[in-house]
Design a protein around this nucleic acid. Sequence first.
DNA 1: TTTTTTACTTGCATTTTGCAAGTCAAATGA
DNA 2: TCATTTGACTTGCAAAATGCAAGTAAAAAA
Lengths: 126, 126
Amino acid sequence: MPRKADATQPTAPETPARRSPCPVACALDLFGDRWTLLVIRDLLLGRSRFKDFAASPEGIPTNILSDRLTRLLESGIVSQVPVEGGKRLAYELTEKGRALKPVLAAMKEWGLRWEEGTQVGLESRS
Amino acid sequence: MPRKADATQPTAPETPARRSPCPVACALDLFGDRWTLLVIRDLLLGRSRFKDFAASPEGIPTNILSDRLTRLLESGIVSQVPVEGGKRLAYELTEKGRALKPVLAAMKEWGLRWEEGTQVGLESRS
DNA sequence: TTTTTTACTTGCATTTTGCAAGTCAAATGA
DNA sequence: TCATTTGACTTGCAAAATGCAAGTAAAAAA
């Protein structure tokens, strides 16, 4: 009798399983780390290419960046679109991703108010 | 000639140094991980004791909880107050900590809107 | 067609997690 | 008062995630 290569249960394509039904906890399952929201910040600022994210002043390691972009694609926060007249792809926020703007805005306000020496603008090493 | 035990430079009491002046990045330096904002969520819900945070449905490991509470104290987001008529201390948000409410609120709204099956309430295992 | 640039991948060393199992003072109860 | 029980942490790892520094390969530019 023919069989599939292995006998593991066909549980869904391996999303690590959420920790609780709390919307905050679920959100953190998707972007609760030191880098993901910085990539989303860059996307909200209009950046769209790997090198642009890598050039942000925080200096995200490229292997981490690669991993975070993959996850953001998987969770539907980011999508890829072909760059006009080329074969490369650019990243952009989906509606779900753009809906994070209030989160970033609140964090920005909090940082400006409570963390001495923070400021916006001037965001591009290289 | 008498000397201090070691010759390391007296650089400030070792706060890991921020990655950039961006307010979002600075905020993430303080609570950019999978657990810290859940502790703050619990505090906003009125919980104040170690065991209460540990009893939240996400099940934070106690060593991590201990570490996060220490950092939150160090960054001035949380403070400790004696429990009435006892020697134990309870945790509570400072003004700086309460100012994170809009961040949590935005994340909650986002989660409820975009993550299927999320819901508020029912937050207490044990 | 050669040279650059862009977008990643690989290989580690180090750090951070997560889990289970202590420890010990404070609160409770008999 | 003294024995238990609870609360608040520590400790000890194994496993996973991070952070470099270097590669690599396809696209774009020269």
